[in-house]
Design a protein around this nucleic acid. Structure first.
Lengths: 218, 218
DNA sequence: CGGAAAGGTGAAAAAGTGTTCACCACTAGG
DNA sequence: CCTAGTGGTGAACACTTTTTCACCTTTCCG
């Protein structure tokens, strides 16, 4: 898909894209011709020959609507279509928690249904669990946690939440009592930790909505 | 989209969905007929009449491929780009393991990087863990398991695998020894089970590549 | 100038596709 | 027993769509 298009060719190409997006099927030669004011299907056919030669479309001979768009790069700024992609944050010192979103290491596609609990899907990100402190809840070190960012006071007591402690992302059950934050693990080998609300070493990130995990082939 | 479909109607509907997703355009009557072994286009046409009356598809008279799926989820079939969607299978009696792929209950978008261990991404599907037998590996009842279908002899010993036992999908570590299949749980409250290779009540589905989980708001 | 490529018109042939008609078999419900 | 609905076969027919052929103009470039 390297060759440049002329203006007319681009008009045709863009029409096809829009048609496929709106109608769910490729246009016929006549439909293209009507849109571009080309009265002869042969004129349209020649236009498509050029688009095919330049690698923008593929044609299936003799098939009605036998036209398909050649895969392009997924547009990183595409609005609308496709499942949302969440930024994956890498380890960040907890004295710079604001860096969390600024330097995502990559983006991961997530089915929207996994975000159905989220109040604001745009506030969601992905981070990796740094330890096994939530083993009792089936969360293991290295798991990808789907986190909806929120303030500590919006976390409900006892719900799984994510915190930045040092450079480590920790999932813990969150409890607020006596003016302090309590991070309760569900693994008997870990101990409960308590921090004052604005402790420099511990930043609440948000609630854990879900997770995913990839088993490596052993 | 309330009326139930018969098995045959569902086969047709699922074929159309898969075709649109894979080909980027709706199938013709003959293409549907070839797939479902219906030799007469009229037979296919009548099938579509029913699907249309029940609200699953819409037809555009006289148009080639004048068929479209009635929108359910927001644009599940974005053309071209986007992560692969895996069929989510629902509970199926183990005397009909072949139904697994035929009646997916939905499709779930999965980031391709979660499939990087798969030999064949097209052989992957999603099923829900039916019990807590793999608690020790952090797999919990209700988790969505990403499974690559394969034959039992292609499973490596000790690897997490999925089995259909009765109507329940079970994740277990798989061992083949002394001519028998051994399903080893990693939860001390569950017991190891042993089946002969062709036991009617236990069908190996494939290896577990990963999982995801959605925490419900408490 | 000459040639190549883009960008057409117009018509007819060939191929693909949807529609209709007549007919059949099975099942479930009244 | 009758009827409606499902699920077909097979063939003829009409419509839609792609392909092909002959011929044209304009622009750009060596």
């Amino acid at each position: 898909m390297t060759d440049r298009l002329t203006q007319r060719q681009n008009e045709g190409y863009e029409f096809i894209r829009a048609f496929v997006r709106d109608e769910g099927k490729p246009p016929t030669l006549r439909e293209i011709g009507d849109a571009l004011d080309i009265s002869s299907t042969n004129g349209v056919s020649k236009l498509l020959d050029v688009l095919e030669r330049k690698g923008y479309v593929e044609r299936e001979p003799h098939a009605a609507r036998g036209l398909s768009l050649v895969e392009e790069e997924p547009d990183p700024f595409a609005v609308g279509a496709g499942p949302p992609e969440l930024p994956v944050v890498s380890r960040t010192p907890s004295d710079h928690p604001d860096r969390l979103r600024r330097r995502p290491s990559s983006y991961l596609a997530v089915d929207p249904r996994l975000l159905h609990e989220a109040s604001d899907p745009d506030a969601c990100l992905v981070g990796r669990a740094g330890d096994d402190g939530m083993n009792g809840d089936g969360i293991r070190k290295g798991d990808f946690l789907i986190i909806e960012e929120c303030r500590a006071r919006d976390l409900s007591n006892g719900a799984p939440a994510a915190f930045l402690v040092g450079e480590e992302l920790r999932a813990r059950r969150f409890l607020f009592a006596n003016g302090k934050m309590h991070l309760r693990p569900t693994n008997s080998h870990y101990t409960k930790e308590t921090f004052p609300p604005d402790a420099p070493g511990c930043h609440p990130i948000g609630r854990v909505l879900g997770l995913f995990r990839s088993f490596s082939k052993s």
